[in-house]
């Protein structure tokens, strides 16, 4: 392209910029009517009910929830108390399993069921 080409093109572009199409009142009215209608439709459509933001749980709350909440904790406490009582005052049925000088440990493996009894020789500790 030579200089004349560039000069002429610039003049064409300038003329086109200053003669840009202008929207009619009718077009603006249609566009605005669409806008209002869409706004009404969007207002009638309920926003999706997302889950409420979770509270920032503290450490002990997380532990509590991790264990299963109050039902699990109740069973765990009961098993613990029973285990301590058995350790302190063994029922007569257990005496055959525990020789003099042996230590007995109650190991609670499943708070929902019964407890297991493990007998560990002192020498093995």
């Amino acid at each position: 392209m030579n200089d004349d080409d560039i000069t002429a093109l610039k003049a064409h572009f300038e003329a086109a910029r200053s003669h840009a199409a202008r929207p009619s009142e009718a077009l603006l009215a249609r566009v605005l009517a669409d806008a209002m209608q869409i706004q009404e439709e969007q207002a009638e459509t309920p926003a999706p009910q997302g889950r409420a933001p979770a509270h920032e749980a503290g450490f002990w709350r997380q532990v509590f929830q991790g264990l299963g909440g109050w039902p699990a904790l109740t069973g765990l406490a009961t098993a613990t108390v029973v285990g301590i009582w058995i350790g302190a005052s063994p029922p007569s049925g257990l005496e055959g399993y525990l020789a003099e000088g042996e230590a007995a440990f109650v190991v609670d493996l499943d708070p929902w069921d019964a407890f297991d009894l493990a007998s560990v020789m002192e020498g093995a500790m």
């Binding site: 840009a20 199409a21 202008r22 929207p23 077009l27 603006l28 566009v31 605005l32 806008a35 209002m36 706004q39 969007q42 207002a43």
Partner: peptide, 18 residues
């Protein structure tokens, strides 16, 4: 739901789009 925003956007953008 701001209707004034709808009018402002219509007047601002429709000429360029057209």
């Amino acid at each position: 739901g701001d209707r004034a925003a709808a009018r402002a956007l219509t007047l601002r953008l429709t000429p360029r789009v057209l």
